[in-house]
Design a protein around this nucleic acid. Structure first.
Lengths: 219, 219
DNA sequence: CTATTATTAGAGTTATTACTCTAATTCGTC
DNA sequence: GACGAATTAGAGTAATAACTCTAATAATAG
């Protein structure tokens, strides 16, 4: 693997561990065992590394969110969407953590991010509309729009939420439970919209695949 | 007003404008027209200023979230809760923006924040339970727990969401619309749970008080 | 008025960070 | 193996940030 790729990989790893703010270019070079000069040979500056990571992230998420071609959407699809998105989000979790700063430091990236967001939001909305069309949900257009935005917010905030509210200082371990907690939480958004015909089936399916993690049942 | 209070006020102002990361103690002192030494006479370090701001924030929010004493909860209560909380959140918006870093830099604050969170979450849950008890919502215990967590996430992420996705670079102006957008969004969480008896009334009330802002109707 | 304490100024320190520059080394190709 | 280009090392720089130190000034009490 080339030096350029290794820089990106290690940068991602370190950003996720400690946040972009705490990771300097020298740290990255040092962990790689290369010189800072070498790093700057491959990247004009720190922002360029970040922009590159955003490229990867954006591409992966857009792939995941594409609607199934030539067939009707099913409940399993929703589950797959969420699992894949959450996994991807976990892999790039520093991004939403430090998003506001990253964007304010790089107007071009900010512009791209806005495009990414509105694409995603439309896509999420389409998924809800498709679920309604398939008779799984009973939600009108406005419901779907609101569901989509709530979904975006919960999904993109989930790992920050975990970090701030549940994990204590050191342990930065993500358990499968925590991922599932996020998925459960997103499903809870659509739960009241399930049609009587599908309600029991879907709920049973969800309970099987995404049981409510223990730690979510406080008291 | 004493120097100590002026430092806190100006720090809050500047943190909100540019984020805690971009505001140095020297900047704060400079805008106040005092020396850095003077600032450090009043505060041991930057974290102490932040911890102090958190004190204020925590106290105000807990006051706001208290349940009404000696009477049944009404729809207007919920509206007041949200308006007040959002105003307070706006006043301290740097906090949730940079929360993850602030907490990782100050374990003691992290501990306090976790307490604050669980208190708030319980309180929010109680509000939903009270609304259910009053026959306004039809939501069981688990629904209320899930609603509470979704509410917390949407509320605490709202201003970051705006900054990243809707505002372009310079304009950091918050319009009343944007606050209302957040309130609308939180109401959309409970909308499907409204009982038939109250549904029309509540929706009419909400439409009057928190119309969906124009910019939320994309396309 | 004096002694003590609280407050402030402002220069200075230490550490860090993003980034540059030059010289060396490796690599691919003929 | 020679030659140009790509890659790398590593010392160095300029800027910045958090914080310290000392001395001066104000405020207060007796």
């Amino acid at each position: 693997m080339g030096t350029r790729e290794r820089i990106i990989d290690v940068a991602l790893e370190m950003f996720n561990e400690n946040g972009e703010r705490a990771v300097t270019t020298n740290h990255i070079a040092s962990r790689l065992g290369i010189s800072p000069g070498n790093l700057y040979y491959h990247f004009r500056n720190k922002q360029a590394i970040i922009a590159n990571l955003f490229d990867r992230y954006e591409q992966r998420v857009l792939e995941i969110l594409a609607l199934p071609e030539g067939r009707v959407i099913e409940t399993q699809d929703k589950l797959r969407y969420l699992t894949d998105v959450f996994n991807e989000l976990w892999a790039y979790r520093f991004m939403h953590r430090d998003m506001e700063h990253l964007l304010s430091a790089d107007p071009e990236l900010h512009e791209r991010y806005r495009g990414f967001f509105s694409h995603c939001l439309r896509q999420i909305e389409n998924i809800f509309l498709a679920l309604s069309g398939a008779g799984i949900l009973s939600a009108d257009e406005q419901d779907c729009q609101d569901l989509a935005l709530n979904t975006w917010i919960v999904v993109t905030s989930w790992f920050s939420f975990l970090q701030c509210n549940l994990l204590s200082g050191d342990e930065s371990v993500i358990t499968q439970d925590m991922l599932q907690g996020g998925i459960y939480q997103v499903f809870s958004l659509e739960r009241p919209y399930l049609t009587p015909d599908h309600r029991d089936d879907v709920l049973a399916l969800q309970r099987a695949f995404i049981p409510r993690p223990d730690w979510m049942q406080r008291r």
